[in-house]
Design a protein around this nucleic acid. Structure first.
Lengths: 344, 344
DNA sequence: TTACCTTATGAAACGCATTTCAGGTCAACC
DNA sequence: GGTTGACCTGAAATGCGTTTCATAAGGTAA
């Protein structure tokens, strides 16, 4: 394929002039400009992006780090990032990490090695101190709370939300409340747990470890949870579920097991993914699509304007009341041993 | 950041020797080798990937072209590609096109401009003749049937599958059969339609245009379909749905509208995505994850071995019988005007 | 008339690593 | 002793654009 030198030769100008034409610089006479364009078209010339990247020190690529793309929450985020990226003529390098630290590092190394201009971290495992040094090579935007002074952060206050939910459930008479979370040791999970425990403490209700479940992401996990609950002697009357996907599994599993929602079990999800609407799941909305859009916007601004690279954005949220939260069932308010009819 | 020149200087060797050490070439004396490594570590040197790409003419990136990542079928594919890509030290450039031809072209231009070594097309709109010229710049693998002599193809024979389904439904007494598809003009859709129409023709049952729906991808679309059906005077007794996601919408919508599946309506999905299992949806399995794995493998082999770049792989499939296909309801076998109880 | 700016153009340096080619040493084999 | 081949090393060419700097013509304000 032709290169810039051949264009220069064909158009009878210098390489510099070709580059000027290519990049729309002023100070090129009309006749040379058209001669260059003519040569470019005749030889079907297109600049080699590697050479451009090398010379400009910019790749117009951004790495997106996430555990799995095959999850509506992250897929939504990806879509948001993608949409804004395309508008700004950026491309996305997808780094699916499965929460493996070594894969997360590899994504950050793309930044260090100048393969990308920045990184958007949707969710990660690695600790901040390992990530921070890479911020020297370009903006890093994290969709999670961090106090780091070199990273930008878009976050949802899960402590606040969880307190809000717990209060709502307690107001409705629930005392037997369980929860599910994703990774047990993530910052968000720890905040959820803290809010949960404090809320119970305030009304002096003991914590039942049996009613707490971790590593819940997919439908299957939700089904396992509801199966486990259906076999319990004393069941929770409400579940605070960390993601709509597993909440959907719980709902559909409950239907199969004959557990009535919300009459016997209230379920609250998170994320408001499409299936939540279909299943009438009460949930918290904080559109992952919008988070993605914002993440890209911040990355882009930080790269092109001389702004501090440590913005913090707390996201609003709101509760979407649908059909899965109700009053605590009378028979369950006190510790009872009632068996519900449908059980395997 | 340090570059190779500074390492050469610090280690007291030539640039060539540093490059040799970096790339593990033989014929470097032990003392020089260790001097180079020492300099590399002291200066924290890492090669600039853009320079490497430029010099090697290879980027270890592959573009993945798909309409939307936020769909379990494509997300599964993406996961498969991703998994194999990581193993081979490749990265993925995600090109979400929303079926817009100009975005599809942009993805192909990445190949022409040497930003990626190849392209995997999961689904596209652009016609083959537009895509083919780009094959000159690197392997292009398409997850769809094509006769093109420069593209590789992994495909499922939807004509065959649809005939299989139609026969099954006809055997079970169904005569009022509807279908839903995605894009009405795609190759796969046309084959589905052809199989559908031929099957009806053979048993001399007239086609009811009202029972055919296009542009169905998401839950919402499925819900719209079932709502439309519930308002029909004469309803189909079976639906051949082109994707599990919209089939799920149909199932959940049917439950809300009081339409019993499969007693009143049989539903067959495609793809066997996770929600299908949860909803007991009878469907065809051809794992999109596996397609992704295969797609990357073919791309990789074509790039690194001297094999023809036009492999064709027809994928196996199998029907997964679950709970949504039944005998045609007696009252529906003949054209009847029976109204089912639950209607809005 | 001098001083200075705008327009126009190309040579050369620069971004950075890989690869070819040529030259050299030393041991083994004929 | 001469030839051959394995081992080692670096200068220079190569991949390809962008950007700086130097130069020069033409115009204008002081």
């Amino acid at each position: 394929m032709a290169n810039i030198k051949q264009i220069a030769l064909a158009a009878g100008v210098s390489i510099t002039t070709v580059s000027r034409v290519l990049n729309g610089h002023p100070y090129v006479s009309e006749d040379k400009r058209s001669a260059v364009w003519k040569a470019i078209e005749q030889l079907q010339y297109k600049p080699n992006r590697n050479a451009v990247n090398l010379a400009k020190g910019e790749t117009r690529m951004v790495a997106v780090l996430l555990p799995f793309a095959n999850h509506p929450y992250f897929a939504g985020m990806l879509e948001g990032i993608s949409y804004f990226a395309l508008q700004h003529h950026y491309h996305i390098v997808l780094c699916q990490t499965d929460y493996k630290p070594e894969e997360e590092i590899r994504a950050l190394e793309l930044l260090r090695d100048k393969q990308v201009d920045g990184v958007i971290i949707c969710s990660k495992q690695t600790n901040w101190s390992t990530i921070e040094p890479y911020a020297a090579y370009g903006p890093i935007v994290v969709c999670e709370y961090t106090e780091s002074s070199v990273l930008s952060s878009i976050y949802v206050d899960y402590y606040e939300i969880t307190r809000y939910i717990m209060n709502m459930l307690i107001d409705k008479g629930h005392r037997h409340i369980g929860y599910t979370i994703g990774r047990p040791d993530s910052f968000n999970s720890l905040n959820r747990i803290r809010a949960y425990e404090e809320a119970l403490q305030e009304i002096q209700v003991p914590l039942v470890p049996e009613w707490t479940f971790s590593n819940c992401y997919q439908y299957d996990h939700g089904e396992e949870v509801i199966r486990a609950i259906s076999n319990m002697h004393t069941r929770p009357t409400a579940l605070v579920v960390a993601g709509d996907q597993s909440a959907a599994g719980i709902l559909l599993g409950a239907a199969k097991l004959g557990i009535k929602v919300p009459e016997q079990l209230s379920v609250i999800g998170f994320d408001n993914i499409p299936i939540a609407r279909v299943l009438e799941l009460s949930t918290f909305d904080h559109s992952s699509y919008d988070i993605g859009c914002l993440a890209f916007t911040i990355f882009y601004r930080q790269l092109h304007a001389d702004v501090p690279r440590t913005e913090k954005h707390k996201l609003p949220y709101h509760f979407i009341e649908r059909m899965t939260v109700g009053q605590a069932p009378a028979s369950f308010t006190a510790l009872s041993n009632t068996k519900t009819p449908a059980q395997k």
